[in-house]
Design a protein around this nucleic acid. Sequence first.
DNA 1: AATCGGCACACT
DNA 2: AAGTGTGCC
Length: 599
Amino acid sequence: MSHTSKATERARCVVHVDLDCFYVQVERKMNPELLKVPCAVVQYNKFQGGGIIALSYEAKARGVRRSMRGNDARVVCPDIRLVTVPTANEKADLTRYRNAGSSVFEVCARHSDLCERTSIDEAYLDITLQARTLLSNMDEFKRRLRLSGVMIGTESNLADSDEFEKEIFWKDSLQPENNDTQDSLLAAGSVIVAEIRAAVKDKTGYTLSAGISHNKMLSKLVSGKNKPNKQTVLSSTKVEKLLSRLPLRDLNGFGGKLGDKLIDKCSIKYVGDLKKYSLMKLAKMAIGSEIVRINSATWMSQACRGICTETVKSRIAAKSISCGKTFRGPTRLRSIDNVKEYIDKLSIELAERLQNAKQKHRQVAKLITVSYHTGSKTVKRKGQEINLTGNISKSRSCRCPATPNAVNISKAVMQVLEKELDSECIRAGVTCLYIGASKLENVRDEATGIDTLLKKVVSASTATSESDSHLYIQKPKQAAKRRTGIEQMFTRPLTPYEPNKKPNRSLQAATRVSNDGGDIQQKEETKPTIHNLFFRAKSKSTKSNSSIRIQNQLTWNQVDQTVFRELPSELQKEVMSSIRSEMPQQATRRKRFKWSQKP
DNA sequence: AATCGGCACACT
DNA sequence: AAGTGTGCC
């Protein structure tokens, strides 16, 4: 038990949230007839009833499986309701689910220190500071514990689990009075997570499951242990035991070829078995046998000990946007015209989604990538023509057009594709087309960007280096006159958050809705200026813009956390990116932490 | 012809 | 820096 003050100071409360059979929930919200009956969401119902991509728990209970097609499902469960994913431009269109997911994670972001969306229906939250605060007020903790309905120190929500699981996932060590600071942090976190889940249910109608632990890897590991609509805590004291019997493939990152190789060639069964190998051995193994790449060694040696230092980022918007379609067998595309026809269609969707990204997140793409699969390819080897079967995939990129509408995207894409698709490809046929936009950058909109705010308050003469140039005043008078954007937000009273409004226009701080449902805590009604918003206990400055002055070296420590937390996530991101130094250190090694089964 | 379409990221 | 491959949902 490493309870040095340093270790406990650093202990985090990290949460993985995962929406329960999400596509089904979305369809049920639109059509309540589907509630409480077995149902599945399928795409492309032309062939054998379509492919199942989401299943209700009722359907699962009846033996329907994800690998089945709609028709198979009907055999097992004749009364199953099948809902087809909407199509647009002759392809499946997931917009409905993406937007529903956004609504959920906006709520999560509002109620947690950090929210990082990792897929259409999953996110990580960091609620360390909130949990610490709650822990420091035991009366408050106990009160909210009662209201939250979380049962700490019981095993009642694990009734179906075997003894091993009870032992591992739920132990009476999670008591408010527990002297293990690390685990009490999780106990406090559990209350907060229950409140967040209640808020999500209240605001959106959706239920989710959550895993609560000290890092991303562990919280993800347990988020699905109790589903649907339940949360699971993994105490630090149980990690070793859990990993010792956890099948290797079940840990994030080991589910693919890497896991297979380790199992086959090193006869590793459980995650804990990896501990037998020193870091050096792992590295040597990596070099010698090419089982793993050298840089995976550190990550592996930490992972098998339950260590994961990767921080939770603050991001709800996607980093790239892409859409594609496969053309199997006879439908494969066999002419340039045919390819263009579908590039046109894909471009329509991509253009729409880019438009949305700009409006919603002020993101603009810099790069367009097109990729395609072609069925076969002939290669010359030792003078012989060899026909390689199996899919060859290629991708090419180009600059994203300044006005990324469907026509311009299609034009740009076809320009690179025409060079690429030689007669051989056309003869073999194109089996998959995929276009995407990446290098999404934040538009520094003068009217709304927080950098404008900084520009206005940092006098040009105070800037000292080239790298600070984005903080300079550019058009101060013009910007001052407008007073429409964020600057205005900070000089008017803050209003409660309303999810339907544009996120960068709304700010919840004056009123904070407590997550237990009924209880509303009022925060003091002030008229925050940028100055007292960001700086604790400094001069309560005036609303007059000219008098506001911020040093251009804004650091993390100067940011008032309680205020920062209330900002829309987009603005949090901007603040973060404006901060010059002293950001919490972030791990750079492995960045992927998703793997658990989906409905 | 039959697990689609989709993200993120490591590596080179 | 662009392109390929892996892993996960």
